[in-house]
Design a protein around this nucleic acid. Sequence first.
DNA 1: ATAGTTAACGGAATCGATTGCGTAAATTAA
DNA 2: TTAATTTACGCAATCGATTCCGTTAACTAT
Lengths: 349, 349
Amino acid sequence: MKIKKEVTIYDLAKELNYSPSTISRALNNHKSISKKTIKLIKEAAEEMGYRPNNLAAGLRNNKSNTIGVLISRINRPFMASLISGIEETARKAGHNVLISQSNDKYENEISNCNTLYDSRITGLIVSLSMETVEMEHFKKFVDKGIPIVFVDRVPDNFNSYKVVIDNYTAGYSATKHLIEQGCKRIAHFAGAQHRNVYRERKKGYLDALREHGLPIEDNLIVNFKTLSFEEGNKATKKLLKMGNPPDGIFSANDTAAVSAIMCAKKMGVEVPEELAVIGFNDDPIASIVQPSLSTVSHPASKMGAISAKRILDHSANTYDTELSEITVLGTEIVVRDSSRKKDIVLESE
Amino acid sequence: MKIKKEVTIYDLAKELNYSPSTISRALNNHKSISKKTIKLIKEAAEEMGYRPNNLAAGLRNNKSNTIGVLISRINRPFMASLISGIEETARKAGHNVLISQSNDKYENEISNCNTLYDSRITGLIVSLSMETVEMEHFKKFVDKGIPIVFVDRVPDNFNSYKVVIDNYTAGYSATKHLIEQGCKRIAHFAGAQHRNVYRERKKGYLDALREHGLPIEDNLIVNFKTLSFEEGNKATKKLLKMGNPPDGIFSANDTAAVSAIMCAKKMGVEVPEELAVIGFNDDPIASIVQPSLSTVSHPASKMGAISAKRILDHSANTYDTELSEITVLGTEIVVRDSSRKKDIVLESE
DNA sequence: ATAGTTAACGGAATCGATTGCGTAAATTAA
DNA sequence: TTAATTTACGCAATCGATTCCGTTAACTAT
């Protein structure tokens, strides 16, 4: 197998009797090069199979036109859509996307952080791992003026760009929806409380109960570790076996909510009549399960797009403001069969 | 915002009174540097916050320790798992992962190909876009000795590494399973026939019918464009309205299969009694839909891991053999309720 | 016609890490 | 003790693109 030699701007320079400077400028449409020359050089480049070397350009400019993404796992519907949005926006701007997953491990997050830094990324988009508390590993980006956008699972104690949904309002609305459907004893599947998303959702749940005069019962609030199907199953079984079982569940994610529906059905509990359920995320399974799952939908792909745009803008304006801008996106209550006990006037928010 | 200056090996050299060569070698554990010196230098590097510049190293070595991934879309369960497998394997070997989606457009695939090439990736992992026929855009990788691994949706006419599942056997087994359940008129939801995966699945379906003495009826074979939920819905409705409707469906993906189940239920057709359904992929929705969907599962994440390993091995052995190795992975028929008309001895393959 | 301006391009340093070749000192062999 | 190795390191070129200064020639204004 013969390996073809790389065509560089020096090869073009020699071939066309121009200096490498001129070749470089021509390829970048520099104004001090005549249209004619630019055309000539570009055509020759095309013909000779020239392809720019991003490593060389990156080294010289100390930037790689690459956005780094650091998330827990890719194969979750929300994360996949998020990345999709990032990729689309980045690519349109001529940027690449480097991905890395922490698998929710703090150690991995640190290590991936370093690796991404070593690639001299233009900016970093992060959704925190479940374990992360310390934020020290992000400091080196700040020191170097590399923008970080935290998305969805964001830190409380770190000043930076953030793109989130209004988890509080979503939790409040979801709970309120169940109340409006006539639920009196609403359980909550809560996620880890040190992560903003789950904490805010629970806050919304609590406030909704309070504001509608419903008592808060600790034994109706289940603290989950991972909000998995199995955990949801176990929790539901336990709840339904109570002497005084709940008549509604607001789950902080769809996976656990679906498991609740399936568990209830198996136990002969009617959904939504005896148990209304609402989830969070609007995963594909939500519209497939029967009865279909009411849930909270949020624009994952859009969040990705916005996050990417933040970084692109930042690097274009080169450190304009020091303001850490937080983008809060709205959510939408999607009412399906799992919670529809009455005819509803569709709410739009 | 003050931007800290980068710490380079030259800074370390000056600080420690060594030459940059020694610093570089020490950091790479070169054998000609004494253990003591290595330890000294590494500790100083750590303390001074030194971080290697991958761009510089990459330029010098003409490789970036980065694997490029070129797929249709990220937010499909199969693809997300595939990438996850790639990322995990790559990272363990100290490689990064660049992703790009073609959105099933030929144009995008070409453009992404070039962008990835420009980043001097170590190797490329590709699942072809729906539109792709010409393979010209991949030639430049071959010319440069950069390995390409085609995965799942692979070309017929291009010599390279390939990682696939045995679609033919899977299609055959899925159909055979329906036959064994007593189905006599089995429909097939077929994908675009210029893509190996769908073509092979259909071949398996046809052979299974033939070998079991069942007639092949053209009007039971539906050619899909995208195997979407909507398409599946429409096709199912049409099939069930026939004077002589099918009693089984083998769908080339789960999305369309699920839509078939839901459509049948809505039309009052019993699944699996009147219509047995089996899908392909074992997406999360398959185990959620009711009745749960029988399907073909395949190891997406493992495919990703193998693909990544191919590239890592290739670049380590620097052009060892010219053999284009094809890896074929097995699949498994997952029998669930949508096709279980009789008691089954679980098959394992 | 002459100074001033502009257009179009070239020279050479630079980004940070790597590495082939060379060398001085230390160690071993004989 | 002297030659032969080995150990431990330094010099300087190199990877490919970019860009700060120039420079030359053509052009414009007066």
